[in-house]
Amino acid sequence: MTAQGRVLSKRARIRLLWLRLHRWVGLALMLLLLAMGISGMALVWPDATERLFHAERFEVLAADEQMPPSALLAAGGEALLHGSRPAQLQLGAPGSAAILSSEVGGPPFLNLGPPRRTHVWLDPADGHVLSVSVETPDALFVARAVHGHLLVSTEIRWLVALTGLFLLFMSGTGLWLWCPGLRSIWRSLRWRRQLGRSMNLHRHFGALASLGLIAQGLTGIFLALPWLLNSAPHDPPSAPTRPVVAPTQTLDAVQASAQQLAGTARLQMVQLPTEAAPSWLLGFSDGSEVSVDDASGTAELLPPEHDHHDGLSGLIHRLHGGDFGWLHRALLFATGLALSMLSITGLLLWDQGRKKRRG
C-alpha cells in the first residue's frame, strides 16, 4: 500500500522494489561508475587522449624523415636524468615520435602499474626533444589505473570484477524497468515532456546503451578474474636489472646484423643489453624479434612467443578493448559516454526527488 492509501498489485510491488534497488545501488556507485565511464572513453582512443593532454609529443617536423636509431639513442640519452641509463628505444610509425625509456628509477607510482621510468619523446627527423616525463604519471596512466584497478592495489582485482557485476545489475534492472514490450519500444523512445529533462535523458541513454553496458560489464569481470576462463594471469615481471654502462656493440652494427634476419621489416623497438642479460633485443614491424649477443655480435631470430590473447580469452580482450575497427571503438566510446551520463542524470533525479519530498 502506498502513502496515498492505494493498494498496489503484486507486479507493481515487485517493480517498486526493483526501482528502489536500482536507485540506491546506482546512488552508492555513482562516482565509481562515472570514473569507469570517463576512463573507458579515454582508453578507447589512447592516441587522441595523449594528444589532448600532451600535444607537444606529436609536433613532429617531417613525416618522411628519420635519423638513424643510434643518433636518436644518443640524443635522447642527453635528456635523461644524470646517472640514468637508457633501456629501450621505441620507433613509431612514420610521422610519430620516437620514445626513449630509461632504466627503472623507483617503485610504481602508488604501487600501481609498471615501475617508474623517465620517458623522452624525440622528433625522429632531427632528434630534438619534444617532451620529457620524469617518473610521473600522465593522463593515460591515470585512466588505466582507474579503469584497470580503481586506484587500488593491482592484487585486489576482485574489486574491478565486483564493479562489473554491479554494472550488470544496474543495466539489467534498468532495461527491465524501461522495457515496455516489443510492440511499444519505439513509442517509449519518444521524448516525454511530463517526465522532465533528466528523466528523459536517463531513460534514453539507458535504453540505447544497455546491451553495450552489459557486454562491457561481463567482459570486464572475465578480464579482472582470468581464472574464470581457466586462463592464468600474466606472469609477474622479473626484477629489473640495470642496462650495461658501455655496450660492446654499437647500435648501428647490431641493427645491421638483425636486419639481415628480419628482411625488409621496419625496426620498431630496441632493448639495450642489461647486466643480467647482456644481449640486445630488436623488434620489427612484422612481429619478429632478433637477439644480438653484445659480446660476439651474433644475431639470432627468436621463435614467436605464445600469444596470451588466443582463444576465448583473446576474444574477450578484443571485445572489451575495441579491437574490431573504428566502428567498434565508436560504439565503446558511446557506451562510456552513456555510462557517464547515466551517473550524472541519476544523481540529478535523486536530488530532484529529495527536494520534492521535502517540499
Rank of each mutant, 00 (worst) to 15 (best):
M1F: 02
V7R: 15
V7D: 05
K10G: 12
L19G: 14
L21C: 08
V25D: 01
G26F: 14
L33C: 15
A35F: 10
L43V: 05
E50S: 02
R51F: 08
F53N: 09
E56M: 05
V60D: 05
L61G: 02
G76C: 06
G77W: 06
S84R: 13
P86V: 07
L91T: 05
P107V: 07
N111R: 11
N111C: 02
L112R: 12
R116N: 10
T118G: 01
D123H: 02
D126T: 04
L130Y: 04
V134G: 00
E135C: 08
G148D: 05
T154C: 00
T154F: 03
A161L: 09
L165K: 01
W176F: 10
W178M: 07
P180V: 06
R183Q: 14
W186K: 11
R193S: 11
L195E: 15
L195K: 12
R197I: 13
M199Y: 02
N200E: 14
F205M: 14
F205Q: 02
G206M: 00
L211R: 01
I214R: 01
G220M: 06
L228E: 13
L228H: 03
L228K: 08
L229V: 09
A232I: 00
A239K: 12
A239V: 12
P240A: 08
P240E: 07
R242V: 15
V244M: 15
V245N: 08
D252I: 02
S257C: 08
Q260F: 04
T264M: 09
M269D: 06
Q271K: 13
E275K: 07
A277Y: 10
S279K: 08
S296N: 09
G297L: 06
T298C: 04
L301P: 05
L302N: 08
H306C: 01
G311F: 09
L312H: 03
G321A: 13
G321T: 11
F324W: 13
L327Q: 14
A330F: 08
A334G: 14
T335K: 03
S340K: 00
L349W: 06
W350A: 13
